[in-house]
Design a protein around this nucleic acid. Sequence first.
DNA 1: GGAGGATTAAACAAGG
DNA 2: ACCTTGTTTAATCCTC
Length: 582
Amino acid sequence: MMTPQVITPQQMQQILQQQVLSPQQLQVLLQQQQALMLQQQQLQEFYKKQQEQLHLQLLQQQHAGKQSKEPQVSQQLVFQQQLLQVQQLQQQHLLNLQRQGLLSIQPGQSALPLHSLTQGMIPAELQQLWKEVTNAHVKDENSGNSHGSLDLSSPAASKNPLLNHHASTNGQYMGHSLKRESSALDDHSHSHSHSHSHPHSHSHSHPLYGHGVCKWPGCEAVFDDFQSFLKHLNNEHALDDRSTAQCRVQMQVVQQLELQLAKDKERLQAMMTHLHVKSTEPKPAPQPLNLVSNVTLSKTAPEASPQSLPHTPTTPTTPLTPLSQGPSVITPNNLHSVGPIRRRYSEKYNIPISPDIVQNKEFYMNAEVRPPFTYASLIRQAILESPEKQLTLNEIYNWFTRMFAYFRRNAATWKNAVRHNLSLHKCFVRVENVKGAVWTVDELEFQKRRPQKISGSPALVKNMQTSLGYGPTLSAAFQASMAENNIPLYTTASMGSPTLNSLANVFREEMNGAMEHGNSNGSDSSPGRSPLPAMHHINVKEEPLDPEDHEGPLSLVTTANHSPDFDHNRDYEDDQGNDDMQ
DNA sequence: GGAGGATTAAACAAGG
DNA sequence: ACCTTGTTTAATCCTC
């Protein structure tokens, strides 16, 4: 019954062990998403009101026709623009929620084997979680997928139609709110609804179903009727690693967007305040976003009192490649050509760091997701980030734990890997120092090393695999989704301050390395490289565009202004006690 | 199937 | 004796 050929039990375990979110985390994420949707709704209304109000004011002022007011009027216009932007952001958000694509694996191939494989291994909690996730979706259908493997949702949902009703309690705001939401914001289902003739589409509004298309991230299967869609949903998007991971990715996407939204709202609020516009509403929570981050953060002690690394943490100034070059607008296409141009790292990074995009960094700081970078890249980044471009081994360790939640575990393992890498790669040079020895980076060596690296960043691929449990698919998915976010982010970035952070650098570097290969070799620093190979495989299939989106994440992952909120006092800081893990 | 990179594990040495 | 820091070797996985 098992088809180990696809994933060995070992790998599976790894996946489950380190990559799959803990039930609690998923729980939180789910709730967050739900809350988000509701919030979105409120926001939408709120902004509408605001806009109306503004409009009125504008009209009044224009009426008044006072010369002196003109400047103010123009200001108002800007303001309005801001409002629009926020709205767009929201729209984008919703769109992402619905169509952001993840998979690209052919259902028949890997999906199935996985099902059977996972079946026996998935922890009960996962099942539970999945119930929550799908619960509302599966309205009927025992969908014949009786072979245990695909059931996932069947146990709870399919058997219990009642669940659907109060599904909202869990995370499935499906019903009305969602419906409303989509009709209001989702131009897809909205604007097109009439063009497509789907008899059931309106009666069976399902967030994952629109215009006869499955909106599951990455899927876009077309269906004639709602029933077949449901069937499809149960069969193809059952509870397996992929779905779970996709769900997770989606959550991250949501988080990202939320942060962005929060930022823009803040901006808007500031603008309103400045213009003395009283908001008609209590104003949504200041930081609507971080439901999750807050949780995790609070859990990990938000206070910031760097100890071991007092200096480095506060030097966000990305020592590396400023992303200023970012294509004005990142589109799936131009990404490719423009690609991540390897920039020599210049000391000139006076780029103001917009505190808003710290998201990605935060993501890795809070989520125990294995960063998609090789140890070498990370080590290098750590070193380059330091004021003196040199770090002691311990400082490198600290950087790892500080920057990545993932490295707060299994210290013995990754530390060994770090040491191993330091010794192994010529690009890392050990320099005797007064107080011992420090490690520096031989940039030339580092760059030199890359091209040889085949297959474009196997690390990435692998990391993604292990990290997401579904390899390339997810990595692509994740990046794709990030890329999507990218656009809105860029939007704001353009009006604010574009920046990138260390992670972005690492990412870019990694990409560059990868691309090096993808594009028929080339010497060291040939500009246009093609990104993750992984993505190619996957995305190419469905949308030739996406593959090049990887740049997205880069820009997305911006900024580094960072608050060393992870104080080193934390348990994970004390390496000792943590090695227990394994 | 082989080459080569990355990761992980582990043995071992030197110093504090 | 123990821990940290480094160096090495080896097994394994992965992509080309």
